[in-house]
């Protein structure tokens, strides 16, 4: 009998495979979006959610490097707080069904939801005249990394005393830095393409649609 699954990959080989798979998923979703005529933002949120989950799972070998924070931030900017919270929570749950679900999932959902809400609140400063302000977005994405990590670290208070908590946060600073810098990279490379996709599929608010109709009639 052949044992076709006997090949054991090292960590670098596995990471290369993961990066290739993420590229395929990203390319396929991008191609699918180009042929999409629907104006429903939920379809795009679903596709970005799938990409975010795949990104988090496949980039897991690199500590704290994943596209979820930036995608949720962009969702907050373009689609508002409620949709970004839905996306954040679904991505936290979906990715943790593979990576491990537990108490921390709740804190991750809260952390990413807070990032989405921050994006919604800062949308007028981050999205100016139909364009993303990349330097400002990069700064917010970097700050979001620290905010998210510290919110998730709160879960440690269930097992650690408050005295040790500050030490615990300090020990995590290198991980926070890697998250922040990788967020800047995701902003530099992915923010404009993802923003264009989101903008193309923004559902017109109901009130605006009514106004348009009324104007046309006059």
């Amino acid at each position: 009998m052949f044992d076709a699954h006997a090949v054991a990959l090292g960590p670098h080989g596995m990471l290369a495979i993961n990066l290739a798979m993420l590229s395929i998923i990203g390319w396929a979703l991008w191609r699918a979006e180009q042929r999409l005529s629907s104006g429903s933002d939920w379809i795009i949120l679903t596709m970005l959610g799938a990409f975010a989950i795949a990104g988090r799972v496949l980039l897991d070998p690199i500590p704290n490097v994943q596209p979820v924070t930036v995608i949720v931030l962009l969702a907050g900017i373009h689609f508002g707080a409620p949709r970004s919270i839905a996306l954040a929570t679904a991505v936290a749950l979906g990715s943790n069904l593979i990576l491990g679900h537990g108490l921390w999932s709740f804190y991750q959902a809260i952390g990413w939801s807070a990032v989405g809400v921050a994006g919604a609140l800062l949308s007028e400063r981050l999205y100016v005249n139909g364009r993303l302000s990349l330097p400002a977005l990069a700064a917010v994405a970097a700050a979001s990394a620290f905010a998210f990590d510290w919110v998730v670290s709160l879960s440690a208070l269930h097992s650690l005393s408050t005295d040790v908590f500050l030490v615990y946060l300090m020990a995590g600073i290198p991980y926070d830095m890697l998250h922040a810098v990788s967020n800047v990279a995701f902003v530099a490379w992915l923010a404009n393409p993802i923003s264009d996709i989101m903008t193309r599929h923004l559902a017109a608010p109901a009130s605006m649609a009514v106004n348009d109709v009324a104007t046309n009639r006059v």
Binding site: A171, P174, Y175, V181, S182, V184, A188, W189
Partner: peptide, 25 residues
């Protein structure tokens, strides 16, 4: 510039991460 810098930073941090975490600890 931001694209090139950010990639350089990520690669640098990933490659030196073990040393950074040990020294920081």
């Amino acid at each position: 510039r931001l694209k090139a810098l950010s990639v350089a930073w990520v690669v640098f941090l990933v490659l030196s991460f073990s040393t950074i975490t040990t020294e920081w600890a």
